[in-house]
Design a protein around this nucleic acid. Structure first.
Length: 189
DNA sequence: CAGTGGATGCTCT
DNA sequence: GAGCATCCACTGT
């Protein structure tokens, strides 16, 4: 029996929560896997959606911790974040990659690809594989359809620069499971 | 491999 | 009207 992650887990600085999420298991309606890559975004971060203040889109980031912030990216993909920090601070962790463990055939069908390595190796890919859409924006992470289980033992976490952004990309706020073949890109120092 | 460009829709200026 | 917290297909070594 593994411990479920509670809302208290997320009621901390995103810079503490993000590395601690590596190794945890994320399922949506029983489909998902182990979190192997995340990125942290805080309120003073020019690359964060919260940087320019509260808007209808990012409202969930300004709410209490332990909720999902889901937004559309490039008009095509969805991206999943987990809201952190005491309320009134807007911080969130972007979930960037999973190692698939549960419902692999269902993920293959949704993604239209065979290779396990390609199912969840990117923020848009994993949302497609787990059927995460804007319908889940603002939903509690400790309630169905979400299931979030803590990692047993210590994960080997490595940090590096963030990916896919132009502003402040050099901040070493990307965290990954060292040596995992399921990352969106290899980690660079 | 590395690099480039198109798809596509919503949010904010 | 610009600009994306992306992905894939295609090009050229």
């Amino acid at each position: 029996m593994t411990a479920a992650l509670t809302r208290d887990f997320f009621a901390r600085s995103v810079h503490d929560v993000a590395p601690d999420l590596i190794g945890a298991t994320l399922l949506v309606d029983g489909v998902g896997g182990v979190i192997v890559e995340v990125e942290a975004y805080d309120q003073e971060d020019p690359a964060s959606h919260a940087f320019r203040g509260r808007t209808p889109r990012n409202a969930v980031m300004f709410g209490p911790p332990g909720y999902a912030y889901v937004y559309r990216s490039y008009g095509i993909h969805w991206c999943l974040n987990m809201v952190c920090a005491p309320a009134d601070r807007a911080e969130a962790v972007l979930i960037r990659a999973l190692e698939p463990t549960d419902g692999i055939d269902e993920m293959r069908a949704r993604r239209h690809v065979e290779a396990e390595r390609a199912l969840c190796s990117g923020p848009g890919k994993l949302c497609q594989a787990l059927a995460i859409t804007g319908a889940l924006d603002g939903r509690a992470l400790d309630e169905p359809p979400f299931e979030l289980r803590a990692h047993r033992g210590k994960a080997a976490v490595a940090a590096g620069p963030r990916i896919g952004i132009t502003l402040a990309a050099e901040r070493p706020w990307r965290y990954a499971l060292e040596g995992s073949p399921y990352l969106s890109k290899p980690l660079r120092a």
